[in-house]
Structure formats: structure tokens, C-alpha cells
């Protein structure tokens, strides 16, 4: 039976080194990635993102736990990885070969069709660089070649570690659009690790945040950010507004800003849903507070990520 999941990670741990030099890179993570989605995998440097990707690709052995791709254990049924295209960390190639020859070598190793190479090179904008050696390529060109290599076998699952690193803004936009098309039109699955949180927010359906080898948050992007709306209100007088609002809503001192030291007006930021706005306005007007502005702001994934990782750090 075909699995609904492109990736299933169960209780996965990885420890590098021995004895005093032991580093626990992953601590029993569990993760499911459904087919036909762009899944964002986020985390600070050294959080365990690349280690997880290496384990999915069977490049390294787990200390504990298992990874299944399309329902097959990658260690026992390595062949399932022929249906996976990947860029791990920076795309690296044989520097003495041309871009096209590099793809030919990878195609031969993976038993992929070499006829797709010109089309793929064209799709990543390298068709006029095919006869140049990779040693003369820029970082961005290598990254584009990496994307072409990942797509070589027309894989059902793409695992991309920082795929837009080194690309110019137009190139980054092209990659994002291309990835979305692969998922929306061809029902492929993309597992995307990136530091560019705005990019992840734009392109991903679900995300997981990893911190110090543990998954600290996971879910749909919309669900994670829901309930994190901010209402920002400009009021006069600030002190009265603060006293009135504190009776029904929680306000931290950091969310109260005086416009200037000599003025009584200022800003209050409430973490609440936009549906609360009428009640807040009524409350302030009844108390004789003047309202100059009220804006609703959704929290960005970046802000959510920073808050989640900071909270996890404080809990450690």
C-alpha cells in the first residue's frame, strides 16, 4: 500500500564523536511530512537541520530511530532514495567537469534519463554555461546546477537545504515559483530547509522548528500564526488607557510606549485577535480616552520563529 507520507521520522537521534567529544545533534525527533506539500524545516545554525537531512538521505547512520521515505525504511530499502532529489548544504560538483558532464555523471549513477539534461539546464538558466567547467561557476550558478541535479530523476520528493543561497532576488523568486509549481501541478513533495523565513512563509504549507536537536513547534503555517495577531492603538491619555485595558487584557510593560517623554499620548500593543477590536474601542471611548489609530498586524513567521527559539532557550 502506498504511504500517505513522503517522510516519516520516528524517535530519531544522532550523536557525533565518542566519549568526551560527544555531540548530540538530534534528540529523538518525530516528524511526518505528507505528500504533495512544501514543508519548511527551520532552525538556527547548529540546530540539527542538516543532520536530519543527511539521515533522510542515508548519508549518515542514526544513533537511534528510523526514517521512512514513501513508507520504506531508507536504511533497509535504500533504493527508495532514487525517487528523491536533494541539495545538501551547498551544491558541490566535480570542479574539473563541465556543468553538463556533472549532470551526466549523476544521471548515470542514478540510472536517470540523460535526455532531460538540456531541458533542466535551460529551466535553471544555465543553458549557455553548459560547456564551462564548474570550477569557473559562481556560488549562485552552482546552486542552480544543484537544483537541476536534484530534479534529474524527476523525483517525487525534493529535499532542499538552503536552495536559494547565493541566488539574486530574481533567481530566488524563480526557485520559489518553480517549487510551488512542482507541488501544485505535479503533486510532488518539497522538504525545504531555509534561513530565509519570509521565503518559507511564502512558499510552505507546513513548518517544523528545530532547536538544539529537538522539534519545538510544528504545524500549518496559518495555524501557527493564528492567535498571534497584534492590535496597535494610539491613545491619549496613555495612563488612563493602560488602566482601563489592564482590567480585561494582559499588557506587558514592553507593549506600552509613550510618544515622547513630555506628551501624554502613546501606543499600546495588545496580543489578541482582530475580533476583539470593537470591545477594546468601546471600553476606551467609555473611559473618555481618545483613539487616533488602531491597526491590526499579523505576526510574521520570523517573529514567531524568534519567539519560539528564545522561549526554548530560556527553558533549557
Amino acid at each position: 500500500m502506498q504511504s500517505d507520507f513522503a517522510i516519516q521520522i520516528e524517535n530519531l537521534s544522532k550523536t557525533y564523536g565518542k566519549r568526551s567529544k560527544r555531540v548530540q545533534a538530534l534528540r529523538g525527533i518525530n516528524l511526518d511530512v505528507q505528500r504533495g506539500q512544501v514543508f519548511g524545516f527551520l532552525g538556527p545554525n547548529g540546530a540539527g537541520k542538516t543532520t536530519t537531512i543527511r539521515l533522510i538521505l542515508d548519508l549518515i547512520r542514526p544513533s537511534q530511530g528510523s526514517v521512512c521515505v514513501f513508507g520504506k525504511d531508507v536504511r533497509r530499502q535504500h533504493d527508495v532514495l532514487r525517487n528523491v532529489g536533494a541539495i545538501v548544504e551547498q551544491a558541490t560538483f566535480y570542479p574539473f567537469l563541465t556543468g553538463a558532464k556533472n549532470l551526466e555523471v549523476i544521471a548515470d549513477v542514478g540510472d536517470h534519463d540523460v535526455k532531460r539534461i538540456p531541458e533542466l539546464l535551460d529551466s535553471v538558466g544555465l543553458s549557455n554555461q553548459v560547456d564551462k567547467r564548474v570550477s569557473s561557476y559562481s556560488t549562485g550558478m552552482r546552486q542552480r546546477l544543484g537544483l537541476a541535479a536534484a530534479l534529474l530523476g524527476d523525483p517525487q520528493l525534493l529535499i532542499l537545504d538552503e536552495p536559494t543561497a547565493g541566488l539574486d532576488p530574481a533567481g530566488m523568486h524563480d526557485v520559489r515559483t518553480h517549487l510551488r509549481e512542482l507541488v501544485d501541478r505535479e503533486q510532488k513533495t518539497v522538504f525545504l530547509s531555509s534561513h530565509l523565513l519570509a521565503e518559507v512563509e511564502q512558499v510552505c504549507d507546513r513548518v517544523a522548528i528545530i532547536h538544539r536537536g529537538e522539534i519545538i513547534r510544528k504545524g500549518k503555517v496559518g495555524d501557527l500564526l493564528r492567535g498571534h495577531t497584534q492590535l496597535r492603538i494610539e491613545v491619549l491619555p496613555l495612563d488612563t488607557a493602560k488602566q482601563v485595558l489592564e482590567q480585561n487584557w494582559e499588557i506587558s510593560p514592553a507593549n506600552v510606549e509613550q510618544a515622547t517623554q513630555t506628551m501624554e499620548s502613546g501606543w499600546i500593543t495588545l496580543i489578541t485577535s482582530a475580533a476583539e477590536a470593537p470591545a477594546i474601542v468601546r471600553c476606551l471611548v467609555d473611559a473618555g480616552v481618545d483613539i487616533f489609530q488602531l491597526t491590526s498586524q499579523s505576526k510574521t513567521l520570523e517573529a514567531y520563529f524568534l519567539e519560539a527559539t528564545e522561549e526554548a532557550s530560556n527553558n533549557d
Binding site: 543527511r54 538521505l57 548519508l59 535504500h78 536533494a86
Partner: peptide
Amino acid sequence: KNITPRNS
């Protein structure tokens, strides 16, 4: 890393 996932 480019070739080991693609073959035994």
C-alpha cells in the same frame, strides 16, 4: 552526497 543516495 550527490551519488550515494542514488545507488548502493
